[in-house]
Design a binder for these strands. Sequence first.
DNA 1: TGATAAATGCAATTGATTTGCGTTTATTTT
DNA 2: AAAATAAACGCAAATCAATTGCATTTATCA
Lengths: 146, 146
Amino acid sequence: MKLIDKENIDFGLLLSQHGLSKTSFRKFLIELFYKTHHALSVDEIINNLSYQIDKVSIYRALNAFEKNGLIHKVPDKANLIKYALCKSECSSEKHLHNHAHLLCSICNETYCINDFKIPVVNEYKGFLINNLKVILEGSCVDCQQI
Amino acid sequence: MKLIDKENIDFGLLLSQHGLSKTSFRKFLIELFYKTHHALSVDEIINNLSYQIDKVSIYRALNAFEKNGLIHKVPDKANLIKYALCKSECSSEKHLHNHAHLLCSICNETYCINDFKIPVVNEYKGFLINNLKVILEGSCVDCQQI
DNA sequence: TGATAAATGCAATTGATTTGCGTTTATTTT
DNA sequence: AAAATAAACGCAAATCAATTGCATTTATCA
């Protein structure tokens, strides 16, 4: 399957496999997520586009991608909606994320990190925990060099 | 000083000490934060009021309280702005919070917890960390009993 | 190819939050 | 305590991200 070849992903196929139509914009969008190593906001998507597209279509594409297990929401400082690529285990049935997020206070980018050890807590004073989020705030490598 | 008496806080004095005018609404509001054990949204504040007040005045009071070190923003599931009481160490110069938050997925209340041990991380792969947020999501004691 | 479903564009709406401004209330000064 | 100054309030309007409705276009499937 082409998908295994990291360098040459068939984004149309990827969309199909997730029950989505392969329109030129959606192929562009999923490819953009694969190329970008931080979470994307609607405005950043627009900035990467060489042609005009309605914001509504972006919102709808993001919602559809999330619903079908391709991307997930990530925290953002300004309470905007941002998305990042899911790990391959995710599907429309269930998102499996328990990774931490790095949030740069200077450039306001969000990065997913998969090797940060998240504390395991199932219960706290009668409160049943089923998800534990960790957000590391600070300054990213690029911003420290300015 | 009256403030030390937990049962009988002088909320007017508290406002003055934080550089705020003691209007009847703001006295009510800071008292509400002291009485309530979870974070408050604008709508919840309105529900607790026995008289009408403009939402704008609530937003301005919350912004002023935060600016002057009385309350701090807390995470909320719906990306709303919610606030909770600060610890006494906070001031207009600096907010000192490194406590975790409990977020009930059912009633959507946010609770601050001060005795959860937050991991200490100063650096992660060149990223300098100056704040680490922990959000515990699950179901609170009250909601489990329904 | 034709029928059906999904995606798009445009206009309009929603909902939380903010801003401007004139008025009221509180604080400070005389 | 009254006048002067500053903070808070109320109302209307604006902003801004995100959503919805609907007609049109594009993709999928039989």
